[in-house]
Every structure is written in C-alpha cells, then in structure tokens.
C-alpha cells in the first residue's frame, strides 16, 4: 500500500496542470537541487542525493501537516514536469510564503512560472482564505 495525497485541489491554467508532489518527481528534482540553479533556495552543486531526497520529502510532508503545500506543475502539451509552486510555511516562520522553483532550465523564460503563480495566488486568497 502506497500512501497518496488525496484532496489536493485540482488546478489548471491554459498550459499547465497542477498535482501533488510524488516519488517519481525525484528524477527531475534531484538534478535541480544538486545544481547551481538551486543555490539561492537551499541547494547547490555541493549538495548530494540525500539532500535532494529530503527536499522532496519536505514538499510532500508539508501537505500532510498543513493541509496545503506546493504543487508540481506539469505542461499539458508535453507532460513535462516544470517545477514546484505554492505555499511554503515552516513552523517558526512568521508568514506564509508563495514559492516557485523551475527545475529544468529549458522551460524558463516562457512565462510558465508567472502563469502558474497567478493561478496559485488566486487559490490561496480564495480557497484557502
């Protein structure tokens, strides 16, 4: 029996769908976390697979603890996993953050993060109050 995140709101935009993070995201997330692209968000070329694994575990775990969390955005046209986007709120941090990471460099610069974050901001102001 593999536990799944249920009750994740179904969100989509013109070019993207959003789903819960899952084990298979590790393949795309790990190279990102261990690259210089992730230097400003707690990753970097000096990080190992274990660090990357923990990032995925945190992305999943926040949903269970908070009832909200970051979505994984997937391109409708190619099925490509773009990155994680959504609320981030570890315990002692005073305010909820809206976060975004684009895992692979290729889909950058096409407005995906902007498109996604407008939808997710509507979701957190609306559905989450």
């Amino acid at each position: 029996m593999t536990p799944h995140l249920t009750d994740i709101p179904a969100l989509e935009t013109k070019r993207l769908t959003f789903r819960a993070p899952q084990a298979s995201d590790f393949e795309t997330l790990a190279p990102f976390v261990m690259s210089d692209r992730a230097t400003f968000i707690g990753g970097g070329a000096d990080k190992d697979l274990g660090h990357a694994w923990r990032i995925l575990a945190i992305l999943c775990g926040q949903w269970h603890l908070r009832g909200f969390g970051a979505f994984v955005a997937v391109r409708k046209d190619t099925g490509q996993t773009i990155g994680s986007m959504g609320p981030w709120h570890p315990e002692p941090v005073p305010e909820k953050e809206l976060s975004w990471t684009i895992w692979d460099a290729e889909p950058e610069g096409q407005g995906f993060a902007f498109e996604a974050m407008k939808m997710i901001r509507r979701h957190v102001y609306g559905d989450l109050g």
Binding site: H4, A57, C60, P92
Partner: peptide, 19 residues
Amino acid sequence: PKAAWILFAAELGHWQIHG
C-alpha cells in the same frame, strides 16, 4: 526550530514516497 519542522515534514513525506 525551523530545521526541526522541516525534518518533521520530511517524516511525513517519507511515508508518501516509500509507503
């Protein structure tokens, strides 16, 4: 406390990833 919370979240995520 923040690092502890992140580890706590990872405990839950571990269940989801591995079962």
